[in-house]
Design a protein around this nucleic acid. Structure first.
Lengths: 335, 335
DNA sequence: TTTATCTATGTAATCGATTACAATGAATGC
DNA sequence: GCATTCATTGTAATCGATTACATAGATAAA
């Protein structure tokens, strides 16, 4: 292994000078710098980052914990994060929690071990107190998910109002018996979207039949199964707001399997606008989150925290969009 | 920051002893160890990994370079890799090349900088020589993609024979005018699948109309566009083998847009069996790669290389499966 | 009883960089 | 001509662990 001392010897200077050349300190005479550069090239020298990191006590690495890396929603956010990271000379250490809270929490030790300069969490299922304490000592930013009433720096959309918007769209199409398949209620976005649904219904004077609200798991299968449940009801819903796109697709598949047409017999709104939402048939009407932007914004915030800069605020709500495609239709009056 | 010296002082021992307790060296008296453990707990001490890594010159981190993290095929492989990594105390540094060769190559410096103990590449688009040289000095394993005639350790399926299998399936359904939308031919799996297609056709005495073979980009859009091209032909194909599922779906969408039914008027086979393949309508008949297994196998190989163990062989071909769903149908004789 | 061996622990070198401080010689100011 | 400042470079401390080697005391062997 080539060390800085080898370069120094070959160039006939001290290691300090070599280091100065590498870090572009500017106080080195031109000729000397050239000698050093030449030696570096000749020896094919690359600085040992471990040594540098130890000395500077910074790793230029950040840890990103995702709930599920195979979910394209999160990998899209991750891409936004990485783009800003790379731009700023940072690398991304990936923690895939595989939807398991324990494994999510276990990644947090990495910060204390100084293997990363900061943490981005795309999931907020760990004990809130643990995270808030961690955030006292290290740069931490949440994205997508968040804790209610916490001051942790967070980037997300307003899930409540988006869910309201989605529901209101169905209401505007004359639907009254609207069902909701929510995400898991122990996950904040599942809860918030459910809340938004109820708010919209209440605001328009529509009562919510409790049997038309079911808790899913954000999976295609749960969407399918719960829709089957709805369809076996005396009077099934004419419209459905699903907590995410996977469940929306599952629900539509279920409806089709029972001979219903979507959107003619059932209108469905999803959430997230994952890649396949537009390929699916019918193309999904859904709430699009600005995944890439969220990732970028999150990483920029983290950089500020790492540099010890003041944040102008701690909660960043990014705008989302209801994307109208083909999965909803106005209810013609015949009920 | 709590250092090992702080623990040593509190426990009234030397840093060497503390270190021995931490690493379970076994040569420490029980009482002493308890004293140390207590101090560690009281001070909430966590060893600084940078220091340890520098001293031991190992990072317990591996670098995984993926061509596109938002592609569920690769994230599924990645999950396999990570599962074995975590199990063995390794962490994953993620390099998302975003389908850009330059950025792919730029990640390779990380090894020389000692920020990772080994490298897994899910893409083989970097200059082959560069990689082979790198592999002389560091543990490197390729997965999914590979170099032709290279001895680099590789885990993959046999794309040629799988493509042959897929094509033969169409032939067995009586199809004769079979089209192929290939992946990019500068990517080895694109090339190999194309090769397999031609082999199968030749072996069954079927000629390949050159206008029925087009080079796509592994994207939904390219599948759509190239199928449109086929459909505007005097005599379009009755069956299609697509280089991956995204292109298969794009092609089907194109066929549908022209009023064709799949599989009645057009049979389609895809490749990869991504998540959405079974949800898509018609559910895709496709070649399933053992993504998770490939990831695991790859990581196990890398671990062997890191530990300087001998590999029994360098090329590992894992079995794939043709999954028959609903996108193909026997051609009834009327042509 | 004396020597050899073993157990438990400490001292200090080491990993490979960065950087505070020191030193040298040249240039500038008065 | 002497003091001061500046430019350039070197020496050595430092980051925080691990670990080779040394040592002291206890035990076993002869």
């Amino acid at each position: 292994m080539v060390r800085i001392a080898d370069v120094a010897k070959m160039a006939n200077v001290s290691t300090a000078t070599v280091s100065r050349v590498i870090s572009n300190a500017g106080t080195v005479k031109k000729e000397t710098a050239e000698k050093v550069l030449e030696a570096i090239k000749k020896l094919n020298y690359q600085p040992n980052m471990l040594a540098r990191q130890l000395r500077r006590s910074e790793t230029k690495t950040i840890l990103v914990v995702v709930p599920d890396i195979t979910n394209t929603f999160f990998s899209a956010v991750l891409r936004g994060i990485e783009s800003v990271a790379i731009e700023n000379g940072y690398q991304v250490l990936l923690g895939d929690a595989r939807n398991d809270v324990e494994s999510e929490t276990s990644f947090l030790t990495i910060l204390g071990q100084k293997k990363a300069d900061g943490l981005i969490l795309l999931t907020a299922r760990t004990n809130q107190k643990i995270l808030e304490d961690l955030s006292e000592d290290y740069p931490v930013v949440l994205a997508c998910e968040y804790y209610e009433g916490s001051k942790l720096p967070t980037v997300s959309i307003d899930n409540v109002s988006s869910a309201r918007k989605a529901t209101e769209y169905l209401i505007s199409l004359n639907h009254k018996r609207i069902g909701h398949i929510s995400g898991p209620l122990n996950i904040v976005v599942g809860r918030d979207r459910c809340r938004g649904f109820h708010q919209a219904m209440a605001q328009h004077g529509l009562s919510v039949d409790p049997s038309l609200v079911q808790e899913g798991e954000f999976s295609f299968e749960s969407g399918f199964n719960l829709m089957m449940k709805f369809l076996s009801l005396e009077s099934p819903p004419t419209a459905l707001f699903a907590g995410n796109d996977e469940m929306a697709m599952g629900a539509i598949k279920a409806a089709k399997s029972k001979g219903l047409r979507v959107p003619e017999d059932l209108s469905v709104v999803g959430f997230d606008d994952i890649q396949f939402a537009s390929i699916f048939e019918p193309a999904l009407t859904t709430v699009a989150q600005p995944t890439f932007d969220m990732g970028q914004k999150t990483m920029r915030l983290l950089l500020k925290l790492i540099k010890d800069e003041e944040l102008e605020k701690y909660q960043f709500i990014l705008p989302d969009t209801l994307i109208v495609r083909e999965s909803c239709k106005e209810l013609t009056i015949e009920e």
